[in-house]
Simulated scan of single mutants.
Amino acid sequence: MKKNYFLNDCKSFLVILTVFLSNFMFAQRNSLPPPVENQFWKNVQFGGGLGLGFGSGYTDISIAPSAIYNFNEYAALGLGAQYKYLKQKDFYASNLYGGSIIGLLNPIRAIQISAELEQLRVNVNLEGSNSNSQDYWNTALFIGAGYRSGSATIGARYNVLDDKNSIYGSAFMPFVRVYF
Rank of each mutant, 00 (worst) to 15 (best):
L86S: 07
T59D: 15
S129T: 03
A140I: 02
V176G: 04
S56V: 12
A64G: 07
R157T: 14
L120K: 01
D60P: 05
Q82P: 05
E73P: 08
G169P: 02
G78V: 10
A140F: 00
Q88P: 08
C10Y: 15
T153S: 11
D163Q: 11
N130C: 08
N106R: 13
G150I: 03
E116K: 09
L21F: 10
L104K: 01
A145V: 11
Y58T: 11
G128L: 14
G98K: 01
V15F: 07
R177H: 06
T139E: 02
S170W: 07
K3A: 10
Y69H: 05
S100A: 12
Q119H: 04
V36Q: 15
R29C: 11
N23T: 11
I68E: 00
V36T: 06
F180D: 02
N72W: 14
N4C: 15
S22Q: 08
T139A: 10
N165D: 09
Y158M: 06
N30M: 08
Y83F: 05
E118C: 08
L117C: 12
A27G: 10
Q28I: 15
I108T: 07
A110M: 06
W41T: 05
T153L: 02
L96G: 06
N165H: 09
A67P: 00
V176D: 01
K11F: 02
G47Y: 07
K89Q: 13
S100P: 03
L79D: 14
G51F: 05
A156I: 02
N130Y: 04
G150C: 11
G155R: 06
L17T: 05
F180Q: 14
L32R: 07
E73L: 14
F175T: 00
S56D: 04
N30G: 12
N23Y: 15
I108S: 15
V15R: 05
Y69N: 01
G80P: 03
G144E: 00
I111N: 03
S129G: 10
N165R: 02
I101V: 15
A64M: 11
S166N: 07
L104A: 06
S66Y: 00
I102T: 13
R157N: 09
R29Q: 08
N130L: 14
F6N: 10
F172H: 04
R157Y: 14
M1F: 09
G144I: 00
I101N: 04
F26Q: 01
R148A: 10
N38W: 06
I101W: 00
G51V: 13
S66V: 00
P65I: 00
Q119Y: 09
S170F: 05
G169I: 14
L96C: 14
M1G: 07
G78Q: 01
M1D: 13
L86P: 04
Q39G: 05
I102L: 08
F24C: 07
G144K: 00
V160D: 05
N106T: 12
D163E: 12
S170Y: 12
A156V: 09
N95P: 11
K2Q: 01
L77I: 04
F54Y: 12
L161G: 12
R177I: 04
A27H: 13
Y83V: 02
P107K: 08
L52S: 03
K11G: 06
A67K: 01
D9V: 11
V15W: 10
M25A: 09
R109Q: 15
Y83L: 06
L52I: 10
I154G: 14
N95I: 09
K3V: 15
F172P: 00
F91G: 10
F26G: 07
I108R: 03
F172Q: 01
N125T: 03
L32N: 12
F13W: 02
E127F: 13
